[in-house]
Simulated assay, not measured.
Amino acid sequence: MCVGALVWNAEGRVLLARTTKWGGLWGVPGGKVDWGETLVDAVAREFREETGLRLRDICHAQTQEAVLSPEFHKPSHMLLFDYFARTDDTRLSPNEEIEDWAWVTLAEAAAYPLNTYTQTLVALAQRREP
C-alpha cells in the first residue's frame, strides 16, 4: 500500500514533484505505509520525510490500483491511497528522491508531464474546485 497527497499552500497553489521513481514524470510526494501505521499517519510521515513539510486538513481523495505500470521504475502492483491536504509552509527540504519541485495552480499542474495516477488526482481536484 502506498499513499500520496496533492497539497495546497496558503496561496492556493499545489505542490508537484519529479522523483527518481517515475521515469522523469511529475507526481505528488508519498510512499509506502509502514506496518501498523494508519493511512493518514503514513501520508503525513512520508510527506514530511520527502519534503520537510507538515500537513493539515488531510482528507481522502481517491484510491487507485497500479498494476505493472510502465511509468514506475520497477515492476510492482500497488494500491495508491491519494489524499488532499494543506500546508502552512512552502519552503521545502527535499530528500534524495525528489529531483525537482514546483508550486503551481491546478490549471498549470494539468499541463505538466504528470504520471497517469497524478493526472487523475489533479482532474479530481479540478472537478471539486469551487
Score class of each variant (00 low, 15 high):
2 C>E: 14
3 V>N: 02
3 V>Q: 02
6 L>H: 00
7 V>Y: 03
9 N>I: 02
9 N>T: 05
18 R>T: 05
18 R>N: 07
19 T>C: 04
19 T>A: 01
19 T>Q: 06
25 L>W: 05
25 L>Y: 10
25 L>M: 09
26 W>M: 06
26 W>V: 02
27 G>M: 03
27 G>L: 05
27 G>F: 06
28 V>M: 15
29 P>L: 11
31 G>R: 03
31 G>F: 03
32 K>G: 11
32 K>C: 07
34 D>E: 15
34 D>H: 10
34 D>Y: 10
35 W>V: 12
36 G>V: 01
36 G>Q: 01
36 G>K: 02
39 L>D: 12
43 V>M: 08
43 V>Y: 07
45 R>P: 05
45 R>C: 08
46 E>C: 11
47 F>K: 07
48 R>W: 13
49 E>V: 11
49 E>A: 12
51 T>S: 04
52 G>P: 11
54 R>Q: 13
54 R>G: 12
55 L>E: 10
55 L>Y: 09
55 L>S: 08
58 I>W: 10
58 I>Q: 13
63 T>I: 12
63 T>S: 14
64 Q>E: 15
67 V>L: 14
67 V>R: 13
69 S>V: 06
70 P>V: 05
71 E>P: 01
71 E>S: 01
73 H>I: 11
73 H>S: 10
74 K>A: 11
74 K>Q: 13
76 S>E: 13
79 L>P: 01
80 L>F: 05
81 F>H: 14
83 Y>M: 12
83 Y>C: 13
85 A>S: 12
85 A>L: 11
85 A>W: 09
87 T>A: 09
87 T>N: 04
88 D>S: 13
88 D>K: 11
88 D>E: 15
91 R>A: 14
92 L>V: 06
94 P>M: 07
94 P>C: 07
96 E>G: 09
97 E>T: 14
97 E>K: 11
98 I>Q: 06
99 E>K: 15
100 D>N: 14
101 W>L: 08
102 A>W: 02
103 W>S: 03
105 T>Y: 04
107 A>E: 15
108 E>Y: 05
109 A>D: 04
110 A>I: 00
111 A>Q: 15
111 A>F: 01
112 Y>N: 03
112 Y>Q: 03
113 P>I: 04
115 N>K: 09
119 Q>P: 00
119 Q>W: 08
119 Q>C: 12
125 A>Y: 05
128 R>F: 10
130 P>Q: 06
130 P>S: 07
